[in-house]
Amino acid sequence: MYSLILATATRLLIPLMLIFSIFLLIRGHNEPGGGFVGGLVVGAAFTLYAAVYGVSQAQNALRFDPKRIVAVGLLVALVSGLLAFFQGLPLMTGLWYPQPLPVIGKVGTPLLFDVGVYLVVIGITATIMFTLFEVEGE
């Protein structure tokens, strides 16, 4: 499926998609967006990469084993909920840092939870797509 135009376009597109996904993730708490869709965009980006350059290249670009990303994402989501629990509050109570940060806005455990969701979605999309590409012999 390698073609010069597609390869060049991909090179340009992928950083844009990654930035866009982080944008979606961060603003998701206030505007349309969030971890689910942000993760899907990253997943799509790496799927495109794998389609153009092959799975091993895509795997290198992603750096981490996608299954591990799923695990880390789940862990992040869980820990974000447990933080409140260790403070003696009910499980998954939102905790917030009182001062808003520049650009990102207010930071708290729900944002961390959304990061967990984001990672899980990236991980599963990449796991599914990479495995399929590999097995179907692209």
């Binding site: 998701g28 708490h29 505007e31 349309p32 994402g73 998954m92 939102g94 917030w96 969701v117």
Partner: peptide, 27 residues
């Protein structure tokens, strides 16, 4: 919940335990 996107707030705060279950299913 300090969030203006109600759908997202439900997902990551009000009903985050459900979401945790759902991402586990995805995994």
């Amino acid at each position: 919940a300090n969030g203006r996107n109600v759908v997202n707030v439900i997902l990551v705060d009000f009903r985050s335990f459900d979401t945790l279950g759902e991402i586990t299913v995805l995994g």
